[in-house]
Design a protein around this nucleic acid. Structure first.
Lengths: 117, 117
DNA sequence: CCTATATTCAACCAAATGGTTGACCAAACG
DNA sequence: CGTTTGGTCAACCATTTGGTTGAATATAGG
């Protein structure tokens, strides 16, 4: 990948992550692959809106979509976050992942985002 | 901090990081604290535009600004990235910081961003 | 074949974003 | 004092973003 493509993709990743609905979707996909309709279910917005969010996540490379029959399955692509995550780590030298703490944090943010939706 | 404030601040962080000019500014501030005018110097845009970018970085908590005389100094606040960084790490389970690789990466992105500016 | 389901598309809208310019204010300088 | 310097503010503009609705497409089921 060229340098420009690299920075461009980091733009897309961070922009994608800046929206709480999209972060919530990614968190849902941590659990399991999901169909578009099921992704949309917990949110109080139209299916078309969720479809747009998924397009943004896909263009950022954060998810992949595969159509089987009439159902389009969404699958998390966590490696896409790698470059951006490393970029951030360069600032804070944060300690390596505390998985338990992360799960607690995730739970709280997930609750909160669903409240908002 | 409440849950809503937490997610809100993550929004602000990721949105702030989605702009290549702002990321370049943060990278510059890794080296040293800087006055607003000096931050603006390498970019081909108005001082007012940079001032706006700095406001966004400040509201995200990523920098602090302190006025001494007529000069406003900008200081990196890397801890602000902590929550967002941990959020991301939860997806990839990246290995702990690889500083050398990061520096190579940073150099490439910095070059590229200055080209664009 | 007809209908229901899954998903996207297209047109539209309000609000946010990222930039400009020119006026403005405050501090430092001669 | 008057002028330069550092920085923000205000108004404006084009583009993007995040949502809506209604029509369109494609597959599945009876």
């Amino acid at each position: 990948m060229t340098q420009a493509q690299n920075a461009k993709s980091i733009d897309l990743i961070f922009a994608a992550l800046a929206d709480p609905t999209r972060r919530a979707i990614l968190e849902m996909l941590l659990e399991d692959d999901m169909a578009v309709t099921d992704v949309a279910e917990p949110f109080e917005m139209s299916l078309a809106a969720i479809s747009k969010h998924l397009t943004i996540l896909m263009r950022a490379g954060l998810i992949a979509q595969e159509k089987r029959g009439r159902v389009k399955w969404c699958k998390l692509q966590p490696d896409a976050m790698r470059a951006s995550s490393i970029w951030m780590q360069g600032f804070g030298q944060f300690e390596a992942l505390d998985l338990e703490g992360f799960e607690r944090f995730l739970e709280r943010e997930l609750d909160e985002t669903q409240d908002m939706a």
